[in-house]
Write a protein that binds this DNA or RNA. Structure first.
Length: 290
DNA sequence: ATCTGTCCCTGGACGC
DNA sequence: TGCGTCCAGGGACAGA
């Protein structure tokens, strides 16, 4: 699922293909809760506009236009943001993917909810999302957005001190705290599990009982896994692809996430799974302290 | 203020 | 082969 590293990889690689481009037209799927701004409004307000910048805030991407409007994008669970002409097996359903055959070039399907076509014949920007947990919203010039306003500091800047202060008096599991976007933004299930493993802290531990030293280790672990994932192109575990259709590489380096029953890379004990706050969590029962 | 449960969605895995 | 059931989960929201 797209978390900070996947969104950042998308941003960096997309940047040279969108900045300076002028939007010729938009194609949208029918209205649904995917569109916080109705498709007709997007089409009326974005046509002819030029993209000035592409920024990231937590797991959100913001397409800045030269007239001050911003297009807010969230990839949700299964969102894929990529350029026209890309090909990847992940862009096809397993059923329609020929065994062993090389994937055909992607053609927009009914999961492709947004298409930005540019002037000058450059490849269009496509937003596909099978489960529609993603979001699109137009923020008018000078306006703010409640979702963005709520976000805590970026996970790449997180410190042990911040984690320690935020977790005092909190009775939720430390894992839930890491996933709380108002505390720190950008962390999802994969990197929460991976950073907890690095810090030797069990995901179920009550937040208030995590020591200052462990908070330091957590902040350090978080930064390490996030930076390394960005370096390797993100995690392609279920649906994530880069803007050119390429897989990331971090799924091959994860230590605990979705490795239930497999041996811990440090001690060999089988990785365990437990549900924390309705989310599956993976940990080593020997290396991560209760 | 904080916490828990529910909901949105759809493809894939699995059991019969 | 085909059907039904369960699962995955980010984030908004309601209710305790």
């Amino acid at each position: 699922m797209p978390e900070l590293p996947e969104v950042e990889v998308t941003r960096r690689r997309l940047l040279p293909h969108v900045v300076g481009r002028t939007i010729r037209s938009l194609q949208c799927s029918p209205p649904s809760y995917f569109f916080l701004t109705p498709p007709t409004v997007l089409q009326a307000k974005l046509g002819g506009k030029t993209i000035a910048d592409l920024r990231r805030q937590g797991k959100y991407l913001l397409l800045h236009l030269t007239d001050g409007q911003r297009l807010l994008l969230h990839l949700g669970m299964t969102g894929q943001l990529f350029l026209e002409g890309s090909s990847s097996p992940r862009l096809l359903t397993l059923a329609s993917h020929p065994e062993g055959g090389s994937p055909a070039r992607f053609r927009p399907d009914h999961h492709t909810h947004l298409q930005l076509h540019f002037e000058g014949g450059f490849p269009a920007l496509l937003f596909r999302d099978m489960r529609k947990f993603g979001k699109v919203r137009l923020i008018e010039k000078g306006r703010s957005d409640a979702r963005l306003d709520k976000l805590g500091p970026d996970a790449l800047t997180v410190t042990g001190e911040l984690l320690f202060d935020a977790s005092r008096k909190r009775r939720v599991a430390i894992k839930s705290l890491l996933l709380d976007q108002s505390i720190i933004s950008g962390v999802g299930n994969i990197y929460a599990d991976e950073s907890l493993f690095r810090a030797g802290v069990r995901p179920t531990r009550v937040a208030a009982r995590v020591t200052r030293r462990e908070c330091d280790a957590l902040a350090r672990g978080l930064r390490q896994v996030l930076l390394r994932s960005i370096e390797t192109g993100g995690s392609s575990i279920s649906d994530f692809i880069g803007p050119d259709g390429a897989d990331g590489g971090y799924q091959n380096e994860r230590h605990v996430y979705a490795r239930r029953g497999e041996p811990c890379v440090h001690c060999g004990a089988p990785i365990a799974r437990v549900v924390v706050g309705q989310r599956s969590s993976h940990y080593c029962p020997r290396c991560q302290k209760r």
